[in-house]
């Protein structure tokens, strides 16, 4: 019996050494979604600085917040997440102020993406990629000249439309179409959007957040309201070369991802170094090309390949006046959103 126990113990130690690996001294723990950086970028950073990057993933912003709350802002050195959740992170005191003297490339940030609602004084965050919600469609199979959200309601599109699985975004865009703010807390306005949304139900074949581009390319759906990254992925596939991408005329919904350093990060120095490294023009360009999100780095724009330029940089004539970001709303308003969304989903089947 003792032998079994000792063998077990040995095994446990063996495995835990394999799992822990190097010491925590020169480590940078990055916490974000999978696939946010090309491998070369991480490798080169490690080579240049001698810091080992530990790349940890979450699946949703909400889970990230939950873990940060649990670990009281320690355990991670750098987090990249969506705008609205960063607002919560900051308000809960889970982020620390950036030391801009350590970030020599700071002025490379595209000013369009600065001073956003979640960090009005840019004290805590540096933007890393942005996305505009667009409509992608296959003109060979769709006879409507799509210009905006209202065209998605066209009777000829029955059972052929896909939308992203984020209720605040989809309902928000319907609110924009009706002339309201995406972030209204007025229950009547939200319910009106809910009624309008139900009219879209017969056309819906697919509601999901991940790889809508695959369904567009496979022809399971012909029109979709997609995230920017999905539009880029559709356009860069050989089967998607003839697809059309529309910035809806009724107004735009967009989102920004931001990097921040958690309040009790063990290695905030390394985090600053990494931020500075990413803000380099060439490095930034390879990151945005890899992710398929819009560049938030002015210095990176000129390094982006011409074939991708129209997707990864802001169009010059873009009307950003009627553009909005999904923000946090009161719990009561969020409950109404949840309710009308459930009703919409139910009427789709």
């Amino acid at each position: 019996m003792k032998r079994i126990v000792s063998i077990l113990l040995c095994l446990t130690f063996l495995f835990s050494f394999a799992a822990c690996g190097k010491s925590a001294e020169k480590e940078l723990v990055i916490y974000t979604w999978a696939g946010m950086f090309p491998d070369e970028v991480i490798d080169n950073f490690e080579k240049e600085t001698g810091i080992t990057v530990i790349y940890q993933n979450f699946d949703t912003d909400e889970n990230m917040l939950m873990t940060l709350e649990t670990t009281k802002g320690s355990d991670y050195d750098l987090v990249i997440a969506d705008d609205y959740i960063i607002e919560q992170v900051i308000s809960e005191g889970l982020a620390q102020k950036l030391d801009k003297t350590k970030i020599s490339n700071y002025e490379n940030i595209n000013p369009t993406f600065m001073g956003q609602f979640y960090d009005k004084d840019d004290a805590y965050t540096v933007p890393y990629g942005a996305g505009i919600m667009q409509i992608a469609y296959n003109p060979d199979k769709v006879n409507v000249d799509i210009k905006g959200y209202k065209d998605l309601f066209d009777k000829s599109l029955e059972g052929r439309v896909g939308v992203v699985g984020n209720n605040r975004v989809v309902t928000g865009l319907i609110l924009k179409m009706l002339g309201y703010s995406m972030n209204t807390e007025n229950e009547n306005e939200i319910r009106e959007a809910g009624t309008k949304l139900k009219e879209l139900a017969p056309n819906i074949n697919l509601i999901k957040d991940e790889y809508l581009n695959e369904d567009l390319l496979a022809g399971t759906i012909d029109v979709a309201l997609v995230y920017q990254s999905q539009a880029t992925l559709t356009a860069t596939d050989e089967k998607g070369s003839n697809f059309k991408f529309v910035m809806p005329e009724e107004g735009l919904g967009f989102g920004v991802m931001g990097m921040f350093v958690p309040s009790n990060a063990k290695n905030s120095d390394a985090a600053h170094k990494f931020i500075d490294y990413i803000l380099d023009g060439e490095v930034g360009a390879s990151c945005f090309s890899w992710m398929g999100y819009c560049s938030t780095n002015s210095a990176a724009d000129k390094y982006i390949d011409d074939s991708l330029k129209s997707f990864l940089t802001l169009p010059e004539n873009l009307n950003t006046e009627n553009a909005e970001i999904v923000q946090n709303i009161s719990a009561d308003a969020a409950d109404v959103h949840e309710e009308i969304w459930n009703e919409f989903v139910k009427s789709c089947n």
Partner: peptide, 18 residues
């Protein structure tokens, strides 16, 4: 935990990027 991932979790978190 933050420094301890299992394989299914690793796969599941890749769903977002494919």
């Amino acid at each position: 935990g933050p420094r301890f991932n299992t394989l299914p979790i690793k796969i599941y978190t890749q769903v977002k990027t494919g």
